[in-house]
Amino acid sequence: MPAANSGSAASQTVHVPLGDRSYDISIGTGNLVDVGRWVTSLRSVTHAVVISDANVAKHYQQRVEEAIAAEGVRVTSLVVPAGEPSKSVSTAQSLWEAALADRVDRKSVVVALGGGVVGDLAGFIAATMTRGLDFFQIPTSLLAQVDSSVGGKVGINLPSAKNIVGAFWQPKGVLIDTAVLETLPRREYLSGLAEVVKYGVTLDAEFFSYLEANVQPMLDRDPAVLQKIVARSCELKAQVVAEDETETTGLRAILNYGHTYCHALETVAGYGEYLHGEAVSVGMLCASRLGEKLGVFDAESTQRQFKLLSALELPVATPKLDERAILSVMQRDKKVEHGKLRFIVPHRIGKVVLTPDVPSDLAMDAWREGCEA
């Protein structure tokens, strides 16, 4: 696989059409070398705050800093501990104070260099510092490349709820270099594949079939397959975000397939016990079984998901946790409306529906049955 510091290969561009908030996603292999010119081509910049985590920083922080500085930009580097616990009020406060100490002003920009945690956190800092700074996403995990770096959702966690404090704050651009995935630990890489599967189930049956046919190349991180699955995932997400940027129509909620169960699992098990994609894998199967119980989905399609997720070495069994705690967290989910549980439920591969008034006993039955997987 090409090294992340090699000359840039031919890139694909996915456009996110949002009026005056529109931006492009540049997807390539080896294109991280162009980051300085990329940032300054999109905006006049004199000061950039680069936020990363300890794991990513040791591979790419200096390279990104030097490339941006070479364009005559003053760079402030801020590094947070790796992992979900960094998406916290205390970490946000430390970043606000550090940025202020290095003379951030309303013309500064934020560059998020890292996975989903860094993207969410750095984006939240950008949305809130001086009432809003422009920011750029450079996602370095597969999960962030195909999902969290696109669409403008930024935020932090509270101890009792994930992503409950946040904003919609679109980046000025997203630069994706699939070659950086070679330094991603295997567990984190596999975790990202769950979000790729999600796009197939929710929006594109043909893409789901492609994934079923390309399990081994995905496990091997084949460059051509990686670029294809990243680009297609970004295209699908861009289409949804363009139609429902701030989740006012309910369409964007379909991207949260499996996430009601997922967030409950992450919260009750303790942030960091499951990687996000691992919890998504478990959650999608719970939602699939719920679709069966509601009579809108078939067991064969649930089995197809089970087989694909298993082949991609993702967890498929529901852990034995306090069911009352699981239900309590689900009742605080952002999709709850007037106190009623709502779930994203599959109707067929390629189509899911936001379903209101789901009885809690059915929801928990779907959870419970996963313990036997």
Rank of each mutant, 00 (worst) to 15 (best):
Gly7Met: 09
Ser8Gln: 13
Gln12Ile: 06
Thr29Leu: 01
Val33His: 01
Trp38Gly: 06
Thr40Trp: 04
Arg43Ser: 15
Ser44Trp: 05
Asp53Cys: 03
Val56Lys: 10
Lys58Asp: 08
Glu65Asn: 10
Glu65Tyr: 03
Glu66Leu: 07
Glu66His: 13
Glu71Gln: 15
Val73Ala: 04
Arg74Met: 11
Thr76Ala: 11
Ser77Phe: 00
Pro81Met: 02
Pro81Thr: 10
Glu84Ser: 11
Ser88Asp: 07
Thr91Tyr: 05
Thr91Lys: 03
Gln93Glu: 13
Ser94Val: 08
Ser94Pro: 01
Ser94Phe: 00
Ser94Tyr: 00
Ala99Ser: 14
Gly119His: 06
Asp120Lys: 14
Asp120Gly: 14
Leu121Ile: 14
Ala126Tyr: 10
Ala127Asp: 08
Met129Gly: 02
Leu133Ser: 03
Asp134Ile: 00
Phe135Gln: 03
Phe136Ala: 11
Thr140Arg: 09
Thr140Gly: 07
Leu142Glu: 11
Gln145Cys: 11
Gln145Met: 15
Val146Ala: 08
Ser148His: 05
Val150Tyr: 03
Gly152Met: 02
Ile156Lys: 03
Ile156Cys: 06
Ala161Arg: 13
Ala161Asn: 09
Val165Lys: 08
Ile176Ala: 05
Thr178Leu: 00
Glu188Ser: 12
Glu188Thr: 04
Ser191Thr: 09
Val197Cys: 14
Lys198Asn: 05
Thr202Met: 07
Thr202Tyr: 00
Thr202Arg: 00
Asp204Cys: 02
Ala205His: 06
Asp220Lys: 03
Ile229Trp: 06
Ala231His: 09
Arg232Phe: 03
Lys237Trp: 05
Ala238Asp: 09
Ala238Tyr: 13
Val240Glu: 11
Thr246Asp: 08
Thr249Glu: 08
Leu251Asp: 02
Ile254Gln: 05
Asn256Ile: 02
Tyr257Thr: 10
Thr260Leu: 00
Val268Ser: 05
Val268His: 10
Gly270Asp: 10
Gly270Glu: 09
Gly270Ile: 13
Val280Phe: 01
Arg289Ser: 09
Leu290Asn: 06
Lys293Gln: 14
Ser301Arg: 07
Leu308Cys: 02
Leu312Val: 12
Ala317Thr: 14
Thr318Trp: 01
Leu321Arg: 13
Glu323Arg: 14
Arg324Gly: 15
Arg324Asn: 15
Arg324Pro: 01
Val329Asp: 03
Lys334Thr: 10
Lys335Asp: 09
Lys335Gln: 09
Lys340Gln: 14
Val352Gln: 02
Asp365Val: 02
Ala366Gly: 12
Gly370Gln: 11
Gly370Ile: 07
Ala373Ile: 14
